[in-house]
Design a protein around this nucleic acid. Structure first.
Length: 846
RNA sequence: GCCGGAAUGGCGGAAUUGGUAGACGCAGCGGACUCAAAAUCCGCCGCCUUUAAAAGCGUGUGGGUUCGAGUCCCACUUCCGGCACCA
């Protein structure tokens, strides 16, 4: 046995062993409980980043732990291979996205293999391969025929110079990233998936999902956003035609205080008024500038302009003005709201600004017309509301809804915040949408025998629109229905489509006759899903929707939820720095910044390697766009995969955000070295000290008990600590005896999911067996946990004043008396009011 | 702006349901070994007063509940994630 710990040799040997044994290959096995453990697949951006190492180490710890508990564990891996960065790289390097992507996959796969993850590589899948995306297309055509997929217009960011659609990420401070031109909103036809049809089910099912964090369920609940209210009609006349302006409100009790209505710039009233009113036309035009980003829209200064149109209040019959408001969203409800300045903060500010009437109709306290106060939105009884005066919230809503219904101007309604999912992307590197546009037959889905619609792989985009739209060889085709010349759709699908069902395909990646087969029925649902908290809404919600859509296609009978248990990993953050080059930010990797700090750790100066001053721009998620990713490869090369794995597990609990710093990694490396040294130096010797073996056994088994509890809670950082504590205990023995032997056996098994290579080597070399992966999971022995005396903390009036050892057999009175004796000097001369005894823990004398 | 989180020594973090705050590490300080250094091993290590013994303070801020609060409640501050075309 080598005296020195040499990670490279140890890791290569272990990996060769696993490969030769096909240790991670799994098949369906009815005799054992199955456990499908899945980490979110990576986008092949170039090389692994720390977030990947963290994610996949957590997944591997879970996988290896469950294997040792006797379960049939599937842990696969694949590539989320379509997406925008490949097109950006293609433009920068003049290399087709396909080549860039596949090169990245090859490199990252080697990195993953080097980290020793227990992955079944025979199931690897890549979303940009036709044998995968064929089934995107196949399912799309099914959903299209059912009406779940449909066409309507959607709003996109438009770069007027490059004549191209921009992703939100490509809009920097309202301007196109390449051209610097102010971005405009533009409406274009797109395909949508009717996720709203599943809104009720997606919301209702959350309650029963006990394996999901409350936090994520709450976010999804709020995102779906069910609200109960009243749909209210305000009749108006436009060009002599009688129409009704429909609004939705959750506060119908305030209807008598509605003094105006506001519509979105895209609303028919606004468009009609703009035709005859140049000032209004300019305002409508202004509203079209800027991005579609909701975060920015919500923080815009609220502006408006009267349309000149008036509508009739459905109860009072008064004429109230209709305004255009830049804060009214066409995408929510019907693009119009009623304005109740007295009881809505936004309406109040709007009314003050434009001198609109403010009419209090709820008896909230101390109402003042000139100043908004928090209580104005409180519920209360109606006042100044005619026949509704004195009614409380629910009664007034009921009465108003009934009256509106009688007039055919409203009814109670349930409204959802969730919108249908627009999946069309005017981009090259994605899955082609399988539709042919025929002048005679309309939008015709591509028939099964013509699938997949293959994406040509040799194109290089140039930033001025989708290259597919410039390639007649791609878009010129014949109508599958009538055979006449027709045009193929050139938009591709949102990459979220690819990732909304990949988890099911891992069960049967080689199946060429169907999207899924009976193997998917065996493995689904995923028992444990692991991935970043940033996916809490979109990816996870889309996957829940897709799983139901697949269920309703008969592909996954009885499966509604894709992920039984969810572990949301905290993000790995890093500091960000930039240099300012002629107003354009150049992002500098934190590894290339030299810092000086003051005694409190505050940054004094920051310089790049070439001596330029660098601006610190806070801490944020590691990303390509801010060049603050930390490459784990250097860490792995210097210390080995086991140290990298141990350190990232040890550094913080899986769900916490982690500000990356590799200070402290030495400690993890030292621990593995100490473990190795102990095994090589002392393992051959008989013990020097055997006297306190009983106490040491107690320590080890108590730590093991706690570690098993922590594993259940997924608190892996303290499991790593536990391993260190066990080694500390064993080291006191300084040699080999029954206690150290047992301790080592426990330690190597407990540690093996975290650092599998070194544990594999030591398990064999110390003669415990051939393969630690097949050893049973260690459990504490009750006898070793027994103690004769209990250590009580003694408090006087809640302050800790001492300790007392009480025999296990002693009753409460004896224990109390012993405690009082132990802290005598603190209670001398004072009356004892009562004594609180927490069995096994603490005695408080008051 | 809206939704969801987080805040504990110089640093990462621990504290199972309200019960000894700081486990386990990092950094630092002192020592052993060494010609020396590295590596390794041993000890100390929240703040403050103090020669010491001992006392007081202490879990982002301000209140509250309790015999007892890092943990529960109310109000705030700062930071992080998401906001539908980054993935």
């Amino acid at each position: 046995m080598h005296e020195r710990y040499e990670p490279r040799t140890v890791e290569t040997d272990a990996q060769k062993f696993w490969e030769s044994q096909h240790s991670f290959r799994v098949t369906e096995d009815a005799s054992r409980p199955k456990f499908y453990c899945l980490s979110m697949f990576p986008y092949p951006s170039g090389k692994l980043h720390m977030g990947h190492v963290r994610n996949y180490t957590i997944g591997d710890v879970l996988t290896r732990h469950h294997r040792m508990r006797g379960m049939n564990v599937l842990q696969p891996m694949g590539w989320d291979a379509f997406g925008l960065p490949a097109e950006n790289a293609a433009m920068a390097n003049k290399v087709p996205p396909a080549k860039w992507t596949r090169d990245n996959i090859a490199y990252m796969k080697q990195q993953l293999k080097g980290l020793g993850f227990a992955l079944d590589w025979e199931r690897e899948l890549t979303t940009c391969n036709p044998d995968y995306y064929k089934w995107n297309q196949w399912l799309f055509t099914r959903l299209f025929r059912k009406g779940i997929a449909y066409k309507k217009t959607g709003v996109v960011n438009w770069d007027p110079v490059d004549q191209t659609v921009l992703a939100n990420e490509q809009v920097i401070e309202g301007r196109g990233w390449r051209t610097g031109a102010p971005v405009e909103k533009r409406e274009i036809p797109m395909y949508f998936l009717r996720i709203t049809q599943y809104a009720e089910e997606l919301l209702g099912a959350l309650d029963g999902m006990e394996g999901w964090p409350e936090q994520v369920k709450l976010m999804q609940k709020n995102w779906i956003g069910r609200s109960e209210g009243v749909r209210i009609g305000f009749p108006y006349e436009l060009n002599g035609e009688k129409k009704t302006l429909w609004v939705f409100t959750t506060r119908a009790d305030t209807l008598m205080g509605a003094t105006f209505c506001a519509v979105a710039a895209e609303h028919p009233i606004a468009i009609a008024a703009a035709k005859t009113n140049p000032a209004l036309a300019a305002f409508v035009e202004e509203c079209k500038q800027g991005t579609v980003l909701e975060a920015e829209l919500a923080q815009l200064e609220k502006k408006g302009m009267p349309t000149g149109t008036f509508c009739t209040h459905p109860i009072s019959g008064e004429e109230i003005p209709v305004w255009v408001g830049n804060y009214v969203l066409m995408t929510y409800g019907e693009g119009a709201v009623m304005g109740v300045p007295a009881h809505d903060e936004r309406d109040f500010a709007f009314a003050l600004k434009y001198d609109l009437e403010i009419a209090q109709v709820i008896d909230v306290k101390s109402f003042a017309l000139d100043k908004w106060q928090g209580g104005y939105t409180d519920y209360g009884n109606c006042i100044n509301s005619g026949k509704y005066d004195g009614l409380e919230f629910q009664a007034s809503v009921d009465a108003i809804a009934a009256d509106l219904k009688a007039k055919n101007l409203g009814e109670k309604q349930v409204q959802w915040r969730l919108r249908d999912w627009g999946i069309s992307r005017q981009r090259y590197w994605g899955c082609p949408i399988p539709i042919v546009h025929c002048a005679a037959c309309g939008d015709v889905p591509v028939p099964d025998d013509q699938l997949p619609v293959v994406l040509p792989e040799n194109l290089v985009p140039d930033g001025t629109g989708n290259p597919l739209a410039k390639l007649p060889a791609f878009y010129e085709t014949n109508c599958p229905s009538c055979g006449k010349p027709a045009k193929r759709e050139t938009d591709t699908m949102d990459t979220f489509v690819d990732s909304s069902w990949y988890f099911a395909r891992y069960a049967c990646p080689d199946q060429s006759n169907a999207m899924l087969d009976e193997r998917a029925r065996y493995w689904m649902a995923v028992d444990q899903y692991i991935g970043g908290i940033e996916h809490a809404i979109l990816h996870l919600l889309y996957s829940r929707f897709f799983t139901r859509a697949m269920r309703d296609e008969g592909l996954l009978p009885g499966v509604a939820e894709p992920f039984t248990r969810l572990l949301t990993q905290g993000m790995v953050l890093a500091e960000t720095y930039y240099t300012d080059a002629n107003g354009r930010r150049e992002w500098i990797n934190p590894a290339d910044v030299d810092l000086t700090r003051d005694a409190r750790g505050k940054i004094l100066t920051a310089k790049s390697k070439d001596g330029k001053d660098v601006v610190f721009d806070g801490i944020g998620t590691m990303s390509k766009s801010r060049n603050n990713g930390v490459d784990p490869q250097q860490l792995i090369e210097k210390y080995g995969a086991d140290t990298a794995r141990f350190f990232i597990i040890f550094a913080s609990p899986p769900t916490s955000t982690l500000e990356w710093s590799d200070e402290g990694v030495d400690g993890s490396f030292r621990f593995l070295k100490r473990l190795w040294n102990y095994a090589s130096v002392y393992a051959g010797k008989t013990a020097e000290s055997t006297g306190d073996s009983k106490a040491i056994r107690h320590e080890i088994h108590a730590v093991l008990k706690q570690a098993n509890y922590d594993l259940q809670k997924h608190q892996f950082n303290t499991v790593a600590s536990a391993c260190m504590k066990i080694l500390n205990s064993i080291e006191k023995i300084r040699g080999r005896n029954a206690a150290s032997e047992e301790g080592m056996s426990i330690l190597l098994r407990l540690l093996s999911p975290i650092t599998p290579h070194v544990c594999h080597a030591l398990w064999r070399q110390l003669g415990f067996g051939d393969n630690v992966m097949t050893a049973p999971w260690p459990e504490p022995e009750p006898a070793a946990l027994e103690q004769d005396e209990i250590d009580y903390v003694v408090q006087v009036g809640g302050k800790t004043r001492g300790n007392v050892k009480v025999p296990k057999s002693a009753d409460q009175n004896t224990a109390g008396a012993m405690a009082a004796e132990a802290v005598k000097k603190y209670i001398d001369g004072k009356a004892i009011r009562k004594t609180i005894i927490v069995p096994g823990r603490l005695i408080n004398i008051v």
